[in-house]
Design a protein around this nucleic acid. Structure first.
Lengths: 147, 147
DNA sequence: CTTCAATTGTTGAATATTCAATATTTTCAA
DNA sequence: TTGAAAATATTGAATATTCAACAATTGAAG
């Protein structure tokens, strides 16, 4: 007796699953490093975005750091308490709030950058230079093609 | 006056960020499809893993579907209420609970599979066959190299 | 101008996740 | 065989996230 004609593909072959798995693993590695400074990955992202010194609105930030608005608001509240960032009203559009990084935030960000760099180096070593760059390229294209 | 010697790489160039971004986008697309059946992505994963008909322990399941134990326990509680899956004690090791998929779960899983398939097709169309397969291959290698 | 819809950010309640503690069973050394 | 340590799953409290409602400001049509 023949098997059913078309076996359904296991979850491990789905792109969505592979992305989730890879993301979790890399994120976990990064968390371990950043925990040396007691900072969650999302806060590092926020500091990085604000590092350009320009003011960024909450909406802009939320999009850039992959958080939705209310979650970002509450995380920013904590970071303001820690004096890592500060708020200012946008003079051109008073609905908006502009976020800026503080000196303390900048200095923390530099320390975080070197922790993150050590993580990237670890990937380069175990996964290879060529594969890493190729993967980055493909991910960028995937993201572009989704907009 | 010269610029500072080494510009720090923006967040958008970090592998961890690209993975998070791609994962969020693909996951979002998948959520939209699965919401037709009112099912979160994690439940689809659970049903897929249990589709082999074998019993899977909670620990095994948690690892496979990328959830930690307590979260999985609570999600399984809901799925048991919905009679999509059921528990049985492992006769060989009575600490363990074996999870099985029900008939209702199987039939839901088939409907979900076709929703998920339409999502993968959408990716193939906008991103291309070759790039998709290459990306999958690289992701698998990255995951392997992290263990 | 004035009014109404759209945009932006925050808040509070509802929901979900996580951490630490617990209960049960197994393993293994003495 | 017994007792201590490890493995497994669940629970409840603490924490975080999300959804829906709100307040403030701007834009734009009449």
């Amino acid at each position: 007796m023949a098997r059913p004609p078309k076996e359904n593909s296991p979850i491990t072959e789905h792109l969505a699953y592979l992305l989730a798995q890879a993301n979790r693993e890399i994120n976990r590695q990064l968390e371990v490093r950043l925990s040396k400074e007691g900072v969650p990955v999302e806060q590092w992202r926020i500091l990085k975005v604000l590092s350009d010194g320009d003011g960024h609105s909450m909406g802009e930030l939320a999009e850039a750091v992959l958080l939705n608005h209310p979650t970002l608001t509450k995380m920013i509240d904590r970071m303001v308490s820690d004096t890592l960032v500060y708020r200012a009203q946008d003079p051109r559009d008073r609905r908006k709030v502009l976020m800026f990084i503080s000196n303390r935030g900048e200095s923390l960000c530099r320390r975080l950058d070197s922790l993150a760099a050590s993580q990237e180096e670890h990937v380069l070593e175990s996964y290879g230079d060529k594969a890493t760059n190729e993967l980055k390229r493909l991910l960028e294209n995937l993201i572009d093609s989704s907009n």
